[in-house]
Amino acid sequence: MVTAATAGKLTLRQVGKIYADYQGGAINALEPVDLDVAPGEFVAIIGPSGCGKSTLLRLIAGLEKPSAGTLQVDGAPIAGPDYTRGLVFQDPMLFPWKNIWHNVATGLEARGLLAGQKDEVDQFLALVGLADFAGVFPHQLSGGMAQRAALARALVNHPKILLLDEPLGALDALTRMTMQDEILSIWAQRRTTMLFVTHDIDEALYLSQRIVIMSERPGRIKDIMAIDIPRPRRRNAPDFFAYRSRLLALLGVGEQA
């Protein structure tokens, strides 16, 4: 059933990011942070906009170089972007001129592996429930389906870590819940380490094992909360209320516990 993950351990030590602004000044996007993520762990990152959560994700993806500190995956430093840390944006960003099959195949094709692994593409399309849509073009898909294709495009490369930057943020509430369950089922099957940026408290609570709470100006980690709610979780479980109140208090909004 559930296989224990052996790869995908993430270690961040004093990782900070300072951008130069257009006037030659400096913007402190991320104060030095420490973060350890175990192989196969599901971690949500939550915080107000401008708290550096996307910066953190981009640093882990290798798309940005840290101004300070070290980032390691399974003990090896992150040198730049590569397929072992898959990326899914809020916008599916499918290539509009490629059909779904070829969109999903992009990574394998890029690394010259497609000829031997065409079955993989079919397999991952089936995993996200798009087996019947292989020949369809992105503009013919709904938002939820497009985001599933984007998931498959990242997963087909067997990433150690999947970085999701508000992947369900643009979907309607019902599609969103369905997608949350699908992401959980993918995670249960593949045990990929998941880093899931969201601004939705309930989504973070429903999905993750731990929630990283960030605060703004300068961006920093305010707290890390373990979510010990047994799975399968029910959306209306009473356990959620206590956690939600604590999270809201940490984020500095409204009701006190």
């Binding site: 798309l63 944006f89 890029a110």
Partner: peptide
């Protein structure tokens, strides 16, 4: 984002 995606997918 396509540029970044291309980097990640190598």
């Amino acid at each position: 984002k396509f540029v970044e995606l291309a980097k990640v997918l190598e």
